[in-house]
């Protein structure tokens, strides 16, 4: 097996392990398009990185965090809805980035590489980046799990119980920004959100509690990466999109598992089918 393939699989697996649990939170907190907006802003980060002679990754990270923070700030006004704001910021940042890139003389940016990812070009340094930041994000999620979960279930209840909600919200955005920076290499700007959303969405039906869902999402993500890269190797298809196609196919296949089997998996006794409603509001 070729070296670049091994590196690609390692990189993809590293990213998928992180996007699983983090993606679960994105799904629970209904932030799918939030992640998308941050990803779209990456072009602005690339342009800024070149302009200021910074590392491109640092540029992307900084812009993503800035966009997330200003979104949080913009949400305080009440005349524009969040989805409108997201569209505004996403495409504003994307367009600014694309225009900005044309002003950079002598720099040719591989647009397609950024849009769809270039997993086969992953190098040693990229792997270090992926596993370093992945370990940081995963351990932060693990340490803050209870607090993050409490905040996701009911923000005010969590706040009354002493969870530093405002701080955690910012931290969560920073983590997403970090994951976007590394996942960019794998699936590209346009498909990043899919790595966060699809495995988590697939895992939802099979879980009765948050922790199994997060773990299953990570596992399904790894499955999609391995399947996608193998597929692209065999049929000579682009790797990033192939990973997303695999993830999507796994989701569709998961729908074929009947509810009865799910209940069996959850360890519940299969009750005889009754025509009475399963659980009515009861007065006691």
């Amino acid at each position: 097996m070729d070296d670049f393939l091994i590196r690609a699989v390692l990189a993809g697996v590293g990213v998928a392990i992180v996007t699983g649990p983090l993606g679960a939170f994105v799904v629970w907190r209904r932030m799918a398009y939030f992640g998308d907006t941050m990803a779209h802003s990456a072009f602005l980060g690339i342009a800024l990185g070149f302009l200021l002679h910074l590392n491109v990754s640092i540029g992307i990270f900084a812009v993503a965090v800035a966009i997330a923070l200003s979104l949080g700030f913009a949400q305080r006004q009440k005349t524009l809805a969040t989805d409108t704001l997201l569209g505004l910021f996403a495409h504003g940042a994307l367009a600014f980035g694309l225009v900005g890139l044309t002003f950079l003389e002598g720099v040719r940016v591989d647009l397609m590489g950024y849009l769809f990812g270039d997993i086969l070009a992953v190098g040693q340094a990229d792997l270090l980046w992926i596993y370093g930041s992945g370990a940081a994000v995963l351990s932060a999620v693990a340490i803050l799990w209870r607090q993050l979960l409490s905040m996701t279930i009911h923000e005010e209840l969590a706040q009354v119980e002493g969870v530093p909600v405002a701080l955690l919200r910012i931290l969560f955005m920073v983590m997403i920004a970090l994951v976007i920076v590394v996942a960019l290499k794998i699936v590209g700007i346009l498909l990043i959100t899919s790595l966060l959303i699809i495995p988590a969405a697939t895992a939802r039906r099979f879980a009765r509690n948050p922790e199994p869902m997060a773990a299953l999402a990570a596992f399904l993500g790894v499955l999609a990466v391995i399947g996608g890269i193998s597929g692209s190797f065999v049929w000579d298809t682009p790797s990033g999109p192939s990973i997303v196609v695999t993830a999507f196919l796994v989701f569709v296949l998961s729908l074929l598992v009947p509810n009865v089997a799910l209940r069996y998996l959850a360890g519940q006794e299969e009750k005889p089918v009754s025509h009475a409603p399963p659980r009515l509001p009861q007065n006691r």
Binding site: V27, W28, R29, R30, T152, I153, H154, E156, L157, R204, A207, R208, N209, P210, P212, M213
Partner: peptide, 13 residues
Amino acid sequence: PQAFEVDPNLPLT
């Protein structure tokens, strides 16, 4: 709290 609804996306017993 007054309003309490958990997102259906979040599996929680």
